[in-house]
Simulated scan of single mutants.
Amino acid sequence: MTGSWAFWALLSAGFAAPTALLAMAGVAGVDSDFATFARTLVVALLAGLIVFAAGRWPAPGTVTARTYLYLGLSGLATGASWLCYFRALKLGEAARVAPIDKLSVVFVAVFATLFLGEKLSFLNWAGVFLIALGAVLVAQRA
């Protein structure tokens, strides 16, 4: 089961769910940019410890410049996303911010189709549409 992408995706969702609640509590007393910085330090330390403990640190020179470029760009996008997310949590309600943040699922489907050549079926697109609709409906003030 641990070799399944679905297992890890569900585990990711399970860990992601409390992050909004914990971040909302954490950002209450500090600047949102500082909160993002503190969270990022924890993530970097944890990831580094896991890689080191598992013995998966690559030998110098074995990682290509292209890999570093894409990982660096991904890191910049992650950082920008987190800064915006924490700012949104500082200004809004977690139950409304988190669903809008999850519109990233919709953007990934569109971008993967346009730029990576991935194919989605009609049923897949229906699901993407429902995710978008659900995010907008949950974010509405009743």
Results as ranks from 00 to 15, higher is better:
residue 63 V to S: 04
residue 57 W to S: 03
residue 136 V to F: 04
residue 94 A to C: 02
residue 46 L to D: 04
residue 36 T to Y: 04
residue 12 S to H: 14
residue 25 A to D: 15
residue 27 V to T: 11
residue 78 T to Q: 11
residue 48 G to R: 06
residue 21 L to G: 14
residue 34 F to T: 13
residue 117 G to E: 01
residue 85 Y to W: 14
residue 110 V to C: 07
residue 45 L to Q: 00
residue 130 L to C: 10
residue 19 T to F: 08
residue 88 A to G: 13
residue 128 V to C: 01
residue 18 P to I: 09
residue 80 A to D: 08
residue 139 A to L: 12
residue 13 A to D: 09
residue 31 D to V: 10
residue 52 F to K: 03
residue 119 K to R: 09
residue 56 R to D: 12
residue 4 S to K: 07
residue 66 R to M: 11
residue 48 G to Y: 02
residue 58 P to N: 04
residue 60 P to N: 07
residue 23 A to Y: 10
residue 91 L to V: 03
residue 63 V to D: 02
residue 70 Y to W: 13
residue 105 V to M: 10
residue 129 F to D: 03
residue 96 R to W: 07
residue 11 L to E: 08
residue 114 L to Q: 08
residue 43 V to I: 06
residue 22 L to Y: 15
residue 47 A to F: 12
residue 105 V to P: 06
residue 66 R to V: 01
residue 48 G to W: 05
residue 104 S to G: 04
residue 136 V to R: 08
residue 139 A to E: 13
residue 20 A to Q: 07
residue 28 A to N: 02
residue 136 V to S: 00
residue 112 A to Q: 11
residue 137 L to E: 06
residue 78 T to R: 15
residue 34 F to M: 15
residue 15 F to M: 11
residue 13 A to H: 13
residue 90 K to C: 02
residue 81 S to T: 15
residue 54 A to M: 01
residue 119 K to T: 11
residue 38 A to E: 07
residue 47 A to Y: 09
residue 2 T to K: 07
residue 35 A to P: 06
residue 120 L to F: 13
residue 52 F to N: 03
residue 32 S to W: 04
residue 21 L to H: 14
residue 50 I to F: 03
residue 92 G to D: 06
residue 91 L to T: 05
residue 118 E to Y: 08
residue 109 A to N: 00
residue 136 V to D: 00
residue 117 G to A: 01
residue 11 L to Q: 12
residue 55 G to V: 06
residue 76 L to R: 11
residue 9 A to Y: 09
residue 92 G to H: 01
residue 42 V to E: 01
residue 139 A to Q: 10
residue 142 A to T: 14
residue 105 V to I: 15
residue 100 I to N: 11
residue 44 A to C: 11
residue 77 A to C: 14
residue 3 G to R: 03
residue 25 A to Q: 14
residue 129 F to A: 14
residue 19 T to M: 09
residue 37 F to K: 05
residue 83 L to M: 15
residue 67 T to P: 00
residue 116 L to C: 06
residue 26 G to S: 14
residue 116 L to I: 06
residue 64 T to P: 01
residue 119 K to Y: 03
residue 21 L to F: 13
residue 11 L to Y: 09
residue 62 T to M: 02
residue 6 A to T: 12
residue 54 A to W: 03
residue 71 L to A: 12
residue 97 V to W: 06
residue 73 L to R: 15
residue 118 E to D: 08
residue 94 A to F: 01
residue 107 F to A: 14
residue 89 L to I: 07
residue 63 V to H: 04
residue 129 F to R: 10
residue 36 T to Q: 03
residue 9 A to D: 06
residue 128 V to N: 02
residue 64 T to Y: 01
residue 51 V to W: 01
residue 106 V to S: 05
residue 99 P to R: 11
residue 42 V to R: 01
residue 132 A to H: 08
residue 86 F to S: 12
residue 111 F to G: 02
residue 47 A to W: 07
residue 55 G to Y: 02
